[in-house]
Design a binder for these strands. Structure first.
Lengths: 347, 347
DNA sequence: CTGTTAGCGCCTTCAG
DNA sequence: CTGAAGGCGCTAACAG
């Protein structure tokens, strides 16, 4: 990576580095237009491209923002990433991307890598884990983030804040009202649905999943319904498929009532639908089915999926702008229950 | 971003910077274990995190790889990004992400930004444009990439190489056999399908789309069929929807034969299916429908979509490894026609 | 095996 | 308004 340097440009233009720097890279004081023109010509003829690393070192500001997601191929995260990218571009920042396996341990690694690169802010897009076995790694993650903040870094979190953080002054969290929305969804479904409820959630200890499960149960209780059975599985399409496979067996049992299945995200709901289909069952005829997120790519699925709409791209944009501007504290975003055909009673 | 520095660590440990550097950051020669321990202790107590910017400047190698996609929220690109990310992590690189609007002009901007950051390789994941009006921007893009290569950068391209590049020695292209596969698809469909063919493609001049259209027409010709009518529209879901809307009108016309619609990518095919549905039509009953890419998230769509499977994640992985290793020239990847229900004749 | 000395490319006071 | 000098944090040749 041996490009031409400012020194070369300056020499060619017959001026000092300082002058060349002032004309080429934004400086408060603009040199005389005659000189400026010479410098620009020299730069162009050499194909000069300022070394951002060196600039970053000199003014200790990198213009980098780090984005940590569980899986960039998951439409939930890629929609968020789109928003992050849009905000970053608008603010003249570049985004560094890291995907993790979802464990706080690998998130810690990503944070350290970003800290090493001196990213100005770090966005944690994935759900927090509250599993007992992750407690240690979570603590280490918090330590790393605290250190990062103490050194001047900003942190943006989506959904839940990171537990154990002390430098909360530089953390911006965009709260996703998972619990409240799941509660609303349950109330809406309880209105039309007679039979028992089943919740298909992610692994226990995945905060987003747990919040949605909890909220849904609250809603059921508020509607005077018994608590739903909860199936814990992978927080993805295949998890949903596995759970759906098991549920299908119960549905086909003689005399079983038609259940209402709440999958904790849309992708899982699709998995459930696929499993039901394999058993010759389909929503809403044999079971009502709802998801969460309202993933854009899934809107053309049939039966159209009842779900909770979340402005994913905005989420990414908001958390990024919040982190960049250094606004501490939480901001919030709105979602909305969307009832479609998969929970219809007009079969 | 004022973290503690190597100098501070060295002072605290009572050694020279060089020694501290040798123990903390990988060096060929390892200092005595006693000293090393002191240095590590000092680093830990200070929470030292090496400044990658400074390291990059000193050894002129950044460990950065730049990824340029049209739209990270598009499952086609996010699957590729996943592969790129995986390869990057394996090779201890970080990925910088840029999304463009798909025009060569904005791609040029991204290349310049990456060049400024001294990324060691740049991956261009999106289709090239051959539109007349993009000729100028394409040329500028080529100039920028050439300069980047001349300065030691590596370029990885997916699908088609960038036109007008002279520094081909440092460009690695993973070719996607769009034309051949589309041809195969046409042959397979012509076998079962009697009626006329319609192609729903992206805007004219989008290389990937044009290649698929061309290949499909070749296949039809080889099967002794008349050329298909081609509808040009947006290379995305909504484009497919618009085209499908128009086609639906013709299908419902009295006495019209059942057409076979080839949408140049899966997402467009979904749009077509949605539009047909709005007109009370559905595949395969009223029209056969095929896509391209075999996007994972769409496999649960019904009718299941006939398409051409592409190993998207591998594509990302391959182009990244190729670009990192500096292997010049093209490598290739295989795809396969997958016939599913949407083109079934057993209605 | 350790420490010293130069830079890497740029920005930014400070003089002139 | 311009030029000279020092420093950002680190690595890599040298010397000891």
């Amino acid at each position: 990576m041996a490009a031409s340097t400012l020194a070369e440009v300056a020499k060619l233009a017959g001026v000092s580095q300082a002058t060349a720097s002032r004309v080429l890279n934004g400086s408060a004081r603009k040199p005389a237009e005659g000189i400026a023109e010479r410098v620009r010509a020299a730069a162009a003829s050499l194909g000069y491209v300022a070394n951002a690393q060196a600039q970053a070192l000199a003014k200790s500001s990198t213009g980098l923002i780090g984005l940590i997601v569980h899986d960039i191929a998951d439409p939930y995260f890629s929609a968020i990433a789109q928003g992050v990218q849009a905000a970053a571009r608008q603010e003249h920042r570049m985004v560094l991307l890291a995907t993790t396996d979802g464990t706080p341990a690998s998130e810690k690694d990503a944070v350290m890598a970003f800290a090493g690169r001196r990213a100005e802010s770090i966005i944690l897009a994935g759900s927090r884990s509250t599993r007992r076995e992750d407690a240690g790694a979570n603590a280490e993650l918090a330590v790393e983030l605290d250190r990062y903040c103490r050194n001047g870094g900003r942190v943006g979190t989506l959904g839940q804040p990171v537990a154990g953080l002390t430098e909360t002054g530089s953390v911006h969290t965009v709260e996703i009202p998972n619990e409240a929305l799941a509660r609303e969804l349950a109330l809406a479904l309880a209105r039309d649905h007679e039979g028992p409820f089943v919740i298909v959630g992610g692994p226990e200890g995945l905060a987003t999943s747990d919040d949605r499960i909890g909220g849904f149960q609250q809603g059921l209780a508020a509607a005077g319904r018994p608590a739903a059975e909860v199936v814990h599985t992978g927080f993805n399409r295949n998890g949903g498929f596995d759970a759906g496979d098991g549920i299908a067996g119960k549905i086909t049992a003689a005399g079983a009532p038609r259940p209402c299945i709440f999958a904790c995200n849309d992708v899982m709901a699709i998995g459930v639908a696929a499993a039901l289909r394999e058993h010759g069952l389909k929503a809403p005829r044999d079971a009502a089915l709802a998801g969460f997120d309202d993933i854009e790519w899934l809107r053309d699925f049939r039966p159209s999926l009842s779900t909770v709409g979340l402005p994913l791209e905005d989420l990414g944009r908001l958390v990024t702008l919040g982190a960049i501007s250094g606004e501490a504290g939480p901001s919030a975003v709105e979602g909305a229950v969307v009832l479609r055909h998969s929970t219809s009673t007009l079969v």
